[in-house]
Amino acid sequence: MSAPEAAALAPTARPARRRRRIDLLLWFCGAWLAVLILAAITAPMLGLQEAQDAAKTLLEPVYQPPSLGSTHPLGTNALGLDMLSRIIYGARVSLTVSISAVLIGTFVGGTLGVIAGYLRGKVDRVIGTLTNTLLAVPALILLVALATVLRPSALNMALALSLVAIPGLIRVTRANTLAFAQREFVTVARALGAGRARVVFRELMPNVLLSVVPMCLVYVSALIVAEASLSFLGIGLRPPQPTWGNMIGEGLNGKMEDYPHLVYVPAAVLFLTVFSFNLLGERMRKRWDKREVSL
């Protein structure tokens, strides 16, 4: 609300220039994510080189280093599969798995958190104990344990990864619920006749979930890394299906020294994506925090 006023009052150009530079970074991150997501969605239509089936790449060069002009702009791997194509198909897996994990986590964690924060009492204690139990187990160990039990499908990965996001989301939604439940509109809704379920899902959830959107973006980036870690360790999705993690894993056994692009290309993409999600989440959090204060 006060932003345009402040800009109009600013006597010098310096603050304005500084703001523009920050925006540039944000736009870059947004554009990167947009391109990546768009490419991942439209991957089959892009006419990409072979990403999975090594039988079709018998005639292709192996370990070709990246060269932007060629048919393999980001190079090829040990089987002659195209790296660009593998990155994009890997993005499909990595993004779908981590985003759906966060969605599952937000729904489950959000519901439990709001219920705990609104009902308090015994329910709160039970959910609190559950949260602390999950938090007490190191995330990676939990994932490794789950990955060894579950079959490595995309759905199972998403479910396992959502367990990492759930406890944090329960905590934050619970805390936000405590604040919102004090507001008069909840009391008014009850006076109008709203029952518990309605208060939780219609009054509290829309408000609370909106306030955790920034955190969800940060979780997406964390889960992309977690998924990549599992794939790298060979307990996530397995080759030939490409994911960023198992692509980095291809550089193991000394191959990275001879063909560094095997690792650098997927690692750079991973870095940029994680950075972008984090930055976006952080910026959104700041903007919303400001609005909370001005309220």
């Binding site: 507001r183 008069e184 509109f185 009391t187 008014v188 809704a189 009054e203 829309p206 309220l295």
Partner: peptide, 9 residues
């Protein structure tokens, strides 16, 4: 209630 904003979702 007193607070007109807080009374409305």
């Amino acid at each position: 209630f007193q607070d007109p904003m807080a009374s409305l979702n």
